[in-house]
Simulated assay, not measured.
Amino acid sequence: MIAVLLLVFGLTPACIFPVSADIPVYPNFDPQKAVGKWHPIGMASKLSELNEHDQKISPMDQTVKVSDGDMTITANYMSDGVCKQSAIVLKHTDKPGVFEFPDGIAHLMDIDYEKYVILHKKKLEHEAIYLSARGSEVGDDIKEKFKKLVLAQNFPEAHIKYFGNVEQCTPKAA
């Protein structure tokens, strides 16, 4: 009886926070090849409206740095007329292309290191898929690939948003 209870309690966290085995991950992802500047092209969210922070930061250019397999993504954004900076550290796991961050997990779904990246981020209260590119545009074939991945994860098609050219900024040194 005790063995059965331990088994049940041991499996409980997986039932509450299921492992996202159905989210595709790019095989043999090399984070060093992702280093550099990325321009957000679009995103899809399970929520119909983004919070204020996501609305500001999502369309901003991002810089990726790698240290010991962890990726730091930094973006500059405007808030109340002041250029600010936001950074998130994606900690590598034992699975290439799968990262942990505070209160969430990220899966690198697809990448062409010279052209585009598709990243899935999931928190308890929010789930989104992001499309970024080395340049300010991608072809229709990449947008179609993005759309297929979004729909395969049961996101509403109406929640796919593409960003126009957004004024970028650089924070002043303190």
Rank of each mutant, 00 (worst) to 15 (best):
A152N: 09
P13L: 05
M109C: 07
A174Q: 15
P156G: 07
C15H: 06
D112M: 10
F17P: 10
I16Q: 08
A106F: 02
A152K: 11
K84R: 12
G164Q: 09
F163G: 13
H53V: 14
P31H: 06
A21N: 15
T93D: 05
A173Y: 03
A87E: 14
I111A: 13
Q62R: 09
E137T: 13
K121C: 06
N76R: 05
F163C: 13
K121F: 02
G69T: 08
F101D: 04
D30I: 00
K65T: 15
K46W: 12
G104T: 03
S79I: 02
N165H: 15
P31A: 06
E100K: 14
D61H: 10
D54Q: 10
V150K: 07
H126W: 11
A158L: 08
Q55M: 07
N51C: 12
A87G: 14
I88V: 15
K84L: 09
E100V: 09
K33N: 10
P13A: 01
P27G: 01
V82Y: 00
S132R: 02
Y113C: 01
N76F: 04
V19M: 08
C15D: 02
T74Y: 05
P156T: 06
K46V: 14
N154C: 07
K46F: 14
S132D: 03
D112H: 12
P102G: 06
P96G: 06
L7W: 02
Q85R: 13
S67I: 05
K161A: 15
D112N: 15
E49V: 12
